[in-house]
């Protein structure tokens, strides 16, 4: 399937589907042995603000305990915020939870929303009634989703007997049968094999492109991010550390780009302005770039006989890891 521009079939209206301003959530935790407990306030999420336009696919990243799940819970109305405002699909999740639930789909990768002991088909039928989907719509969508997510072989199997990949596809179906405007995915590919991950990613792209469904996902899998998201938000220590597109995330990283040069014959390490040789292996040399790659390439080509050149972008995984590692003072907020 070609990589279609997001929401090609459905131009994004002006009003954002998710509008978060100054969002904060603090918890009181008790610590220490019984009778000598001390209480302290932890800010799980502090002053987070962002908007998601309709039709976007946005990745929400962060290390464990950074505030990802807390944010997702506030967006879906499970948790009420301690400060700030949240509007999702024009509703206030904390106060209009059940109305919102009818308009969004939520999938938790770690636990199923399906009924454990019921066959998948019964679970999905039940979903139709809970969301009041007309029978004809349900049948059509179920047929579409059954084909796209290849549910056929296990529709009659009780959920507890499904493999993780099958269960996740079942969960996605259950979350989409009422045709939600927004799909919220919490770790959708966690623990899945390569084939299942790929099926789900391609499906999500198709869903976004053809149905215009907005997708907001948290993940630890940067493969998800690179394949699905044009925009990422990184939360760390409860604060938004980055919000922008993937290219900007790469640029923001101090991790430099690398130029791999294959020379005609082995030579001494290359010295050019704006680059530094970091490794030599026979005729191949690795140059870390400080400056514009074009200038460096021109300089190298002028002085050496070059057989091949590759420009390597920093690995997104390293970029994100680096962002998490940055000391709090430098972290600040980078918006691209």
């Amino acid at each position: 399937m070609p990589d279609l521009p997001a929401a090609a079939a459905h131009p994004a209206p002006a009003d954002p589907i998710v509008d978060v301003r100054g969002l904060g959530r603090s918890f009181t935790v008790s610590e220490g042995p019984f009778l000598r407990r001390t209480r302290r306030t932890v800010h799980a999420v502090a002053d987070v603000g962002f908007t998601v336009p309709r039709g976007a696919i946005v990745g929400y990243l962060g290390p464990n305990g950074a505030g990802k799940s807390t944010t997702m819970k506030m967006l879906t109305g499970i948790l009420s915020p301690s400060s700030g405002t949240v509007r999702v699909a024009g509703l206030e999740p904390a106060r209009q939870r059940t109305r919102l639930a009818a308009r969004i789909g939520v999938v938790f990768g770690q636990r199923t929303t399906l009924w454990w002991d019921l066959p998948l088909r019964d679970s999905l039928a039940l979903t139709r009634h809970l969301y009041h989907v007309p029978a004809t719509d349900h049948a059509r969508r179920l047929a579409e989703l059954t084909e796209l997510l290849e549910l056929g072989p296990f529709l009659r199997t009780p959920v507890r007997q499904l493999s993780l990949g099958q269960r996740m596809r079942g969960d996605l179906t259950a979350a989409l049968l009422h045709d939600p405007e927004l799909l919220v995915l919490d770790e959708p590919t966690i623990g899945l094999d390569v084939v299942s991950k790929s099926t789900i990613r391609e499906f999500l792209l198709k869903l976004n492109a053809e149905r215009g469904t907005t997708i907001l996902l948290t993940t630890h899998d940067l493969g998800d991010v690179e394949r699905l998201c044009r925009r990422v938000m990184v939360i760390d220590h409860g604060r938004l550390a980055f919000d922008g597109d993937i290219a900007a995330l790469r640029d923001s990283a101090p991790a430099p780009r690398t130029l791999v040069v294959d020379l005609a014959a082995p030579t001494a390490p290359i010295t050019v302005a704006g680059a530094r040789c970091v490794a030599v292996e026979g005729p191949r040399q690795w140059l870390e770039l400080d400056a514009n790659p074009a200038a460096v390439i021109a300089a190298v080509a002028a002085e050496h006989e070059v057989a091949d050149l590759t420009l390597r972008e920093p690995d997104i995984e390293e970029v994100v890891a680096d962002l998490y590692r940055r000391p709090a003072g430098e972290r600040g907020r980078i918006t691209a």
Partner: peptide
């Protein structure tokens, strides 16, 4: 859209406003 002819596409009918939830 250069879809392979075998792949099913998702319908594009307008999205319905969901009815108010009823618990009873």
């Amino acid at each position: 859209m250069a879809e392979p002819s075998t792949a099913r596409t998702l319908t594009t009918e307008p999205r319905r406003t969901p009815p108010a939830p009823r618990s009873v």
